[in-house]
Nucleic acid binder design. Structure first.
Lengths: 189, 189
DNA sequence: GTCTATATAAAGATAGAC
DNA sequence: GTCTATCTTTATATAGAC
């Protein structure tokens, strides 16, 4: 039983690579690291993926698309509550991989080196702009960043090292905290 | 003029390495990358540091010490305001390097691989515990994480790509946002 | 304190057999 | 679809001259 149908080898690679990228970083993980856990040779892996970067792409694909959708939402007329709720859902859902990997500088460098408009920082700043409003005061910008920090990093921290996703009550609590951070006594938007 | 007194070569290495670690990641940065900017040979760098890991240590030294002090503060009887304010000051001050590098999985892996009690996650959880209180409800834990997210990641985001530190008013705004995130309508602690 | 040259290991990736 | 073997490049690090 040296193999298990093997059509799923590809998905096993993605699973193992994702785990290793998360714990050792993208640049810090070698192909040999992956195949070591996979139990195959390196050549076998290269049958499924043409390069290490293609593995990263396959892992990040859905997340990047979801991230882009949020940025578009920010460009529209969404309220702060809609936007922050969408951010929480992003991190708790399709974007959770990116929320984690987006902190890895070697991932960011790999993405931004390519012509593709994977401009993470750029998309993030559109969200800030939507929350802070046009020509924001310093205080408004800080409150916007604070709210985003709750929605993104707060959610990520809550989910860290867990199997299941966010429960409804947890989502509500996170969103409420983000909204409190966003509205000063004076309130914005 | 092939050299400039050269007693400061060491500090130039730290400066350049810090910049590169930040943008390409620790694992993603090679000694050749560093000496490429430094304008010397690789051997010259190894005169100043015995290994790449020693460079990382030199960069992180102060930050790690500051981080440890915060964890001790959390174990004491500090109020939420004192603790969150200390966190903001940490990220804005001595700990800013760690706040940035602590997101790099290859840095975390390098640190935690060593016996030394650089247990970052562990120290972080002591801060959460201090803010959430003993036997916290789910909601209390989430509010604590949210407040920490503001103090750490919010502050980091505000400082990203900037020279100067936090102004007094900015610090106050961040702390206020963190406290709002922490206190539900009901309040804690 | 910096150099050239090199040792040694590990990286990403491929060739060709099965 | 996976293997062994290997190529090529790059990595960390050292030796020894100046």
């Amino acid at each position: 039983m040296t193999d298990r149908n093997a059509a799923n080898t590809r998905s096993r690679i993605l699973e193992i690579a994702g785990e290793l990228f998360r714990t050792k970083g993208y640049a810090g993980t070698s192909i040999a690291d992956i195949t070591g856990r996979l139990g195959t040779s390196k050549a076998a892996l290269y049958y499924h993926f043409p390069s290490k970067e293609h593995i990263l792409d396959a892992i990040l694909g859905d997340s990047l698309a979801a991230h882009a959708r949020i940025a578009e939402l920010a460009d529209g007329n969404a309220t702060a509550e809609e936007l922050l709720g969408a951010l929480v859902d992003l991190v708790a859902g399709a974007g959770t991989v990116l929320a984690v990997f987006g902190n890895d500088p070697s991932v960011v460098a790999a993405l931004s080196q390519r012509e593709s408009d994977y401009r993470l920082r750029d998309k993030d700043s559109r969200i800030v702009a939507a929350l802070a409003g046009p020509r924001p005061t310093t205080a408004a910008r800080i409150r916007a960043q604070a709210a985003i920090a709750v929605a993104k990093d707060g959610t990520r921290m809550i989910l860290a090292g867990r199997d299941r996703g966010l429960r409804k009550a947890e989502r509500a609590e996170l969103l409420a905290a983000a909204l409190r951070a966003h509205h000063g006594q004076g309130g914005t938007r």
